[in-house]
C-alpha cells in the first residue's frame, strides 16, 4: 500500500481537486433539481393565459370569491373560486382549512391543475398579523383593497 501514498504537496492538490469536483457536481445537480422541482407561482389570469402541464406542482394565489366556498357532502372537501379581478379558477381542496381562510380574503393554494378544477394539496392563508405568505403580502397591496376592503378591517375569522 505504500505505493499509494503520494508526496504531501501532491496529496493536498489531489484533495482540493476532488473536493472541487464534488462541490461543482453538487452545484449542477442542485441547479438541475431546482429547475425541475421548484414550484412556480401563478395568478388566476396567468393560469388562464398560459396553463402549466398537468403533472407540475404550482402555487396559485388570489382572492377567495365571496359566497363561493361550498362544503361537499363528504364533510372534509370544499370547492371555492379564486380570482384576481380578471380571471377566476375553481379550486377543490380536501382537508382542514387554515384558521384564517375566509371568503373575500387572500389564499395561496398549492397543487396541480386538474381537468375541471385546480386540485389543491394545501392552502396557505394569512397566519396572523405578523405572518402573511409572501405572495399574499404583495397581493393585498394592490388587489385586496379594491376587491374586499371590508374584510381587511373585519380581521379574525
Amino acid at each position: 500500500m505504500n505505493t499509494l501514498r503520494p508526496k504531501p504537496k501532491h496529496q493536498r492538490l489531489v484533495l482540493v481537486v476532488i473536493a472541487l469536483i464534488v462541490l461543482v457536481g453538487a452545484g449542477f445537480l442542485a441547479a438541475w433539481g431546482l429547475r425541475s422541482e421548484a414550484n412556480y407561482f401563478y395568478t388566476p389570469s396567468q393560469l388562464a393565459a398560459d396553463p402549466p402541464v398537468y403533472s407540475r406542482m404550482i402555487r396559485l394565489g388570489g382572492m377567495v370569491r365571496e359566497g363561493s366556498i361550498q362544503q361537499l357532502d363528504d364533510g372534509v372537501s370544499i370547492r371555492f373560486t379564486v380570482g384576481d379581478g380578471e380571471a377566476e379558477v375553481p379550486v377543490r381542496f380536501t382537508g382542514i382549512v387554515p384558521d384564517l381562510f375566509v371568503e373575500g380574503s387572500g389564499v395561496v393554494a398549492e397543487g396541480r391543475m386538474g381537468p375541471t378544477a385546480f386540485m389543491a394539496d394545501s392552502l396557505l392563508a394569512k397566519h396572523d398579523e405578523n405572518y402573511v405568505p409572501r405572495e399574499l403580502q404583495e397581493m393585498t397591496e394592490y388587489q385586496a383593497r379594491q376587491v374586499v376592503a371590508e374584510t381587511e378591517t373585519g380581521g379574525g375569522r
Partner: peptide, 29 residues
Amino acid sequence: AILGVVLLGTLYPLMAEAMGDRVSVGAPY
C-alpha cells in the same frame, strides 16, 4: 455538498425573485 444543496435551495427563491419569477422550493428537491 449537502450544505451546498441546502444553501442553493434556500436562496433560490430569493435569486428567482430578483429575476422576476416567484417560486418556492419544497421537500421533493
